[in-house]
Amino acid sequence: MSGGTLTFRRGLKDALPIIFGYFSASIAFGLLARSSSLTLWETQSFSLFTFTGAAQFMALNLINAGASGPQIVLSYGLLNLRYLLMSAAVAKKVDITHFLQRPLLAFGVTDENFAVTTSNEGQVTPAYQGAVELGPWIGWNLGTLSGWLFGSILPATLSAAMVSSLYALFMALLLPDLKKGLPWIITAASAAGVNTVLELWSGLGSGWSFIIAMMVGTIIGMFVIPAAPEGEAA
């Protein structure tokens, strides 16, 4: 993605795949939230105010597993700590022209739009970044609304299958990491293994299982993944 002027319109165009992907994944979120007995407003609030795919699904899982409020919020924070790096990369990439753009553009950084923004060769304009965040945010919220309202019309097997859209999204995001080599595979696999063992057999509950698995996997990763020559977020 290079060349041309980085207008708002151009941002929307670049964000189109994310908008579609988010729309379908968030239908599953809306549906799942309703079946977890969340009200429409509670469900929509998650998408409007936190706008964070993986963590929203995790929150539903934890709610269903009977986790406590603080456990859920702590897991949310730990899972989203990665945005510190992504936000930093995006912040460096945008040519800020007004100080208010900082708090505004910080709101909608996600894994996917971070990837789109950083794939541009040079700096991007605030308008472009605004579009890359706003489009997916609208898609995510419309999908959430549709999923809660109409998701139950879908046949049971289809709605069960739609939940797999999230795991597909995770897999699609994980695959580039796995391609980086064995150390990265070991990192993901150790977190996956620890989480599976703890969640299925430890009785700790999903909240702590996930946090422990993520920490263990990351620490193992710090040992096996060679240090990058420059400490830059990839």
Binding site: A54, M58, L79, L81, R82, L84, L85, D111, Y167, F170, M171, L173, L174, D177, W184, T187, A188, A189, S190, A191, A192, G193, V194, N195, T196, F210, A213, M214, M215, V216, G217, T218, I220, G221, M222, I225, A228, A233, A234
Partner: peptide
């Protein structure tokens, strides 16, 4: 923070 997303995704899928 760079490595954590990879671990997180692994634990999210399994």
């Amino acid at each position: 923070l760079t490595i954590m997303p990879t671990a997180a995704l692994g634990a999210l899928i399994f």
